[in-house]
Amino acid sequence: MFTCHAVRARLTPYLHGTLPLKVRRRVSAHLERCPHCHAAYVQQRQLMHELQRRLPPLGQPTQPQLARVWDGVQAEVRASQDKSPAVRMLRYRASYGLAALGLVALLLLPVVTQHDSASASAPLHTRPAAVAFATDWPPQPLTLYRTAASFRSRYGYNGTATPQAQAALTPAPAHRP
């Protein structure tokens, strides 16, 4: 047999229908006999109906409110997508790639400009061999061949000047009037 205290403690689950059948029957039997507990049960039931009626419309949002929240959601999600690790990594890679490209271009610039100035100068065969050798570094096979040919034509194979070269190098005697 349940006491009044035990029944009052079970009124809410009794109203919600969550009590086991056996307990439910015992509570029902008590409520039929006890007018005080029955009055408490009626009050509790009224309150439950009132809450079921009053709470669902509480805080019903308006359309502008929902639109405002949606705008905020969209803005925050977009901002976070911009800051996502994948996008950040892509940006880092792009910036590092550009920096590396710039560095390489900077290093190649003097070589490219030097080569351009050398090729824009006088033709190779008219230049002295030493100048050609210095400006055309690293020497190309054709340049080396021409330099060697020029040396041979002047000094022969053993390094002594040929008679033609000596004649060409010896200044002509001054004619006396």
């Binding site: 669902p56 805080g59 949002p61 409110q65 929902l66 405002r68 929240v69 949606w70």
Partner: peptide, 24 residues
């Protein structure tokens, strides 16, 4: 889900501005 979620937030916080912020 927005309307239900907003109602829940309002029911717990009982303040319109806070409910909007939390729902967002």
């Amino acid at each position: 889900y927005a309307a239900g979620l907003y109602r829940l937030c309002y029911g717990l916080l009982l303040n319109r501005q806070d409910a909007e912020d939390v729902a967002q």
